[in-house]
Design a protein around this nucleic acid. Structure first.
Lengths: 208, 208
DNA sequence: GACACAATACCAACTGGTTGGTATTTAATT
DNA sequence: AATTAAATACCAACCAGTTGGTATTGTGTC
């Protein structure tokens, strides 16, 4: 049996990394912080990872896996209409702004700010995570565009990346202002932009 | 003579801080990095600042001063029409995405991500910087709204903060993707949103 | 204007706690 | 027996902050 319990210590370490890095950032994270939270000693940590940077890359990849599963199982995918799926995605992003700030903010958005100049490996892993998620969103946007805004001049890819930028920026504001309220407001603006783009504007309903 | 050169060493230190923190972040910044770039020794550093955290707060405040002067002297203020000033601001934000990434990205947006949990003093200084700048932008937005969208349901304050969120998020994408191009694209989306909000839409011109 | 005196600005060397990483050993699994 | 997983103990480098001292500048006093 259990040919691959695969020692869940590694996953415990990665889970610990997600929370520590989102609290303190990558540089301020100490290897011992991770070990403490995972109830492991340093010897164990260095058995599973080559070093701190290697761990950060693994954390970004683990983040990509867990978040893509999380979004893949989200309810908005059930809508038949692609625009409903897109707007459902935005509603979902807003709805999950719950709990403490480290709980709802983005690991890779935090980490890339610290490591983009000093660690190409970390930067690439963060970029892959953000761009990969954006590409998923872009799929629904592309189909919705064909249906509702076929002649618009923007591309689905750039709109999906813009969406990620808004969300990342919302997290920065949430951190500065100590709460998710402003983040939700900025996603509201993004939703209004989407409504305009997909021609639910010009009916007079959106503007008072 | 020169009763108060006021020792420009302090300002040299602060200037060094702006570049080092934008390159490596706050935690990875070493006091000696600052000293090296300012051609000073550690003794000199600790003469001017109580410690690293105190320096970070001073850096955020220095950033607020220099950027507010920079934006105050920008050409877009000369427009008579408030909406022209608002759109000019966005054009200006896009136009200054030049040079290397540490040169055009935001000090306080970077720093608050690292320090929001661990240093209330730094967080507050970063928040004051972002919110203060947003408040300046909100002034023109408020006047433009009265003229062009008086009944719209959004507030000038929330739109100004949304604008800062987009810009901060654009910086994160620029860091992940190693260049300003995506940042410019996301500001293009923001400009399109503003055109919609201020009723330059509904003419069919924006959408092919 | 000369002198004492005090404050400012800065430097070079040092300290001590922190921390990423290693070497060695022990326990479990196959 | 061999491989993997994890613990204990340790090290060397790093780095924020300290100390003690030296120029330089400003200020009050005679």
């Amino acid at each position: 049996m259990n040919a691959r319990p695969k020692s869940d210590a590694r996953e415990q370490l990665l889970k610990a990394g997600l929370s520590v890095i989102r609290e303190k950032g990558y540089s301020a994270m100490r290897v011992e912080d991770i070990c403490d939270r995972a109830s492991l000693t340093k010897g164990g940590f260095f058995h599973h990872f080559k070093g701190k940077e290697d761990f950060a890359v693994a954390s970004a990849n683990y983040w990509s896996e867990t978040t893509s599963q999380f979004f893949a199982s989200a309810p908005y995918h059930q809508h038949a209409d692609p625009l409903d799926r897109v707007m459902g995605y935005l509603d979902f992003r807003e709805a999950i702004l719950k709990g403490s700030i480290p709980e709802f903010t983005c690991l890779v958005g935090t980490m890339v700010q610290e490591a983009y100049e000093t660690s190409p490996a970390i930067r690439d892993a963060c970029d892959a995570s953000i761009s990969g998620h954006a590409a998923e969103v872009a799929k629904d946007i592309a189909v919705a565009k064909l249906l509702y805004a076929p002649d618009a001049e923007w591309t689905p890819e750039s709109l999906a990346l813009h969406t990620q930028a808004v969300i990342q920026g919302a997290f920065i504001l949430a951190k500065a202002k100590q709460g998710p309220e402003i983040a939700a407001e900025t996603i509201d603006h993004l939703k209004r932009y989407f409504e305009y783009l997909f021609k639910r504007n010009c009916t007079g309903s959106a503007i008072a």
